[in-house]
């Protein structure tokens, strides 16, 4: 009887301890979530707060009839998927190299991590100068070695700028992939590779039948997390191109920002954010399922 009472007391204390965190989550997550959803169902322009009213799903209907929004949505997926895939593949290659015994491995690892450690604002100022057609070192170098006849307009041409921003994001993200995958590879027992080697397996077979299966879970989780980060990312493009030239590098976070703060159209901007939330929710569900299957394994 006394034991049961103690257990109840302990549970009560546990619940009491969660109250501050719960209140914080309610305040900074749950309230903004529902408030945001509520705003997306309203006509609400900051310039005309007196005209605020409920309009149902009109903001969503407008969005999905808006060719510009659909184009931006498409580019956001493209931007995200290409960034995540290239970051993963390059991170994987680097992790494979770093996982081998080699002199100066620590130095290489630190160097590879540098892009992740540089502040985005600093990095993007540097990128702007590097990509400049006249004084940028990239164009100067390529022209010196005869690789190009005229400068590449990395940021001035819309179709090139779309890839340029992907490249800078890839540069920032691959170190994360590398370090996560390297950590996962380090935990694979050496015996497995030695046994495989004794059985005549080469690099490719070992990679395919030992490495990949062993890092599968980490790969899935890290790519899903990175998808969420990149899909929501604002600073990379905003700092590098501001969404230009001529809106060529607009992604959903950029478009939502301009719609809310430049046009004052909070209703439409939050509708965009809710669309992003839906995408993220699907990705989060996949993430949870992967996590669960990992736990079961």
């Amino acid at each position: 009887m006394k034991k049961k009472k103690n257990k109840i007391e302990n549970n009560r204390l546990g619940y009491l301890m969660t109250i501050p965190a719960t209140l914080l989550i309610l305040l900074v997550d749950i309230y903004p979530l529902f408030n945001g959803i509520s705003l997306s169902l309203q006509k609400y322009n900051l310039q005309h707060p007196d005209k605020r009213r409920f309009i149902g799903l009109d903001n969503y209907v407008d969005l999905f009839q808006d060719v510009e929004f659909l184009g931006v949505l498409g580019y956001t997926f493209f931007y995200t998927i290409v960034t995540v895939v290239t970051s993963y593949l390059f991170g994987l290659i680097l992790a494979l190299i770093m996982n081998r015994k080699m002199p100066g491995k620590g130095i290489y690892r630190t160097l590879a991590l540098l892009p992740w450690a540089v502040a985005p604002s600093v990095a993007n100022v540097c990128w702007r100068l590097l990509f400049n057609d006249r004084v940028g070192i990239i164009n100067i170098f390529l022209m010196k070695i005869g690789a190009i006849d005229s400068p590449i307009l990395f940021l001035a041409k819309g179709d090139i700028a779309r890839y340029t921003v992907i490249f800078t994001d890839f540069w920032r993200d691959f170190p994360f992939m590398m370090i996560v995958l390297l950590a996962s590879m380090s935990s694979i027992p050496r015996d497995l590779y030695e046994s495989a080697y004794m059985d005549g397996a080469g690099f490719w077979s070992s990679f395919r039948y030992i490495t990949m299966p062993m890092i599968k879970g980490v790969s899935a989780i890290s790519t899903i997390l990175m998808f969420i980060w990149v899909f929501n990312r604002f600073d990379n493009i905003y700092l590098l191109t501001g969404g230009g030239p001529n809106k060529a590098t607009y992604t959903l976070p950029i478009m939502s920002y301009f719609t809310s703060f430049m046009r004052g159209n909070m209703g439409k901007a939050t509708a965009m954010a809710v669309v992003m939330l839906m995408v993220m929710t699907v990705v989060a569900i996949i993430y949870l399922r992967v996590m669960k299957s990992e736990e079961n394994e």
Binding site: D29, P32, L33, I228, L277, V283, A284
Partner: peptide, 12 residues
Amino acid sequence: LGMVMGMLQGCG
């Protein structure tokens, strides 16, 4: 869910 809800914080 909390992790992905943050994006709406600025819109409230």
